[in-house]
């Protein structure tokens, strides 16, 4: 695989803390220019994975390659091309936001005062750069952390929970920032987040971890594509609709999701041979008004709920267990 195909390649990445495996046998490949979401419940191993990708934590087994080069052998070289915001943003509290960025810029190299100002403005802190970071709110620190992550114009940006502590306008700002990093600047972005909706609208690829193992790895569009075998219906008479649907041979399971005080209801119907048009016609003939009928759309939240509702298979696996 050449430098140009994948920014991140991890093979059988594992990390054990004491007797507990935080990450186990994780294979990861992130294509250049992708916005990849890393999802998982608490303790799934997201932060440990990000730390291993940055060389902060040494893998117990496995290897990481960034831009085609081994992280262990070419750490300094590849980290020049990486920007990150890991967990809570951290700064020197006695220094101003601008001074913090200037110091980080000196360490990363190639950052001048104009670039610092541009980054501050990009995250909406253009007029607060002279304030000491000790006086920043959580949201301001988060935004300054994002500025620090993109300060040296890295090709690969890692963001760990970038939306934590942000108000709705700031969430929109960050969402736009992430998309523009990928679409306008061609950067690769890896975002770890609990905010599933944000991942759904921001990322084009998602990796779901559970108990330190990868359980889903795919394109968001494919994971949440409409399920034509399941229909969502809105009817004026829930009782009558349920009775009619359950009597049909080509209909599988029928779930009632919501019942209104006027008897109207939202239903989810699994098709087992019947056609949606056929059901629509049949319901109308049975005297039930159908106000909407559409293939069931699966969200990341549904996927996440399904996968995390299953009993833990390898979560917090103990040595020898």
């Amino acid at each position: 695989m050449s430098d140009g195909d994948y920014v991140v390649e991890a093979e059988a990445l594992s990390k054990r803390f004491g007797k507990r495996w935080a990450v186990r046998e994780l294979d990861l490949a992130i294509a250049r220019g992708a916005v990849c979401g890393l999802l998982g419940p608490n303790g799934a191993g997201k932060s440990t994975t990000l730390r291993m990708l940055l060389g902060l934590v040494r893998p117990t087994h496995g290897a990481v390659r960034l831009f085609g080069a081994s992280l262990r052998d070419a750490r300094l070289h590849v980290l020049k091309r990486v920007g990150c915001l890991i967990e809570a943003p951290a700064f020197y509290p006695h220094l101003s936001g601008r001074k913090n960025l200037e110091l980080l810029g000196r360490i990363s190299g190639g950052v001048d005062a104009a670039r610092v100002q541009a980054c501050l403005e990009r995250v909406g802190l253009g007029d607060r750069g002279e304030d000491r970071t000790a006086g920043y709110s959580t949201g301001m620190k988060q935004r300054l952390g994002l500025a620090a992550a993109i300060l040296h114009d890295p090709e690969f940006v890692l963001l760990d929970e970038p939306l934590n502590g942000l108000d709705p306008p700031a969430v929109l700002l960050v969402r736009r920032l992430i998309r523009s990093l990928a679409e306008e600047e061609g950067k690769t972005v890896l975002v770890s987040s609990h905010m599933l909706h944000e991942v759904e609208v921001t990322c084009d690829h998602v990796v779901l971890l559970r108990g330190g193992r990868k359980v889903v790895d795919g394109k968001v569009a494919e994971l949440i594509k409409p399920d034509h075998a399941r229909l969502e219906l809105r009817v004026n008479d829930g009782e009558a609709a349920l009775g009619w649907l359950r009597a049909q041979a080509g209909v599988g399971e029928v779930e009632e999701e919501e019942r209104g005080p006027d008897g109207s209801a939202s239903l989810v119907v699994s098709l087992a041979g019947a056609e949606s048009a056929q059901l629509n016609r049949g319901l109308i003939e049975a005297g039930v008004e159908v106000s909407s009928l559409a293939p069931r759309r699966r969200s990341l939240e549904d996927l996440f709920a399904e996968l995390t509702a299953e009993p833990a298979a390898v979560g917090a696996e103990e040595e020898g267990a």
Binding site: L54, L56, R75, I86, E87, A90, Y92, I107
Partner: peptide, 9 residues
């Protein structure tokens, strides 16, 4: 900031 520095080159 230890994390921030160590994640830099």
């Amino acid at each position: 900031t230890l994390r921030v520095i160590c994640a830099r080159p």
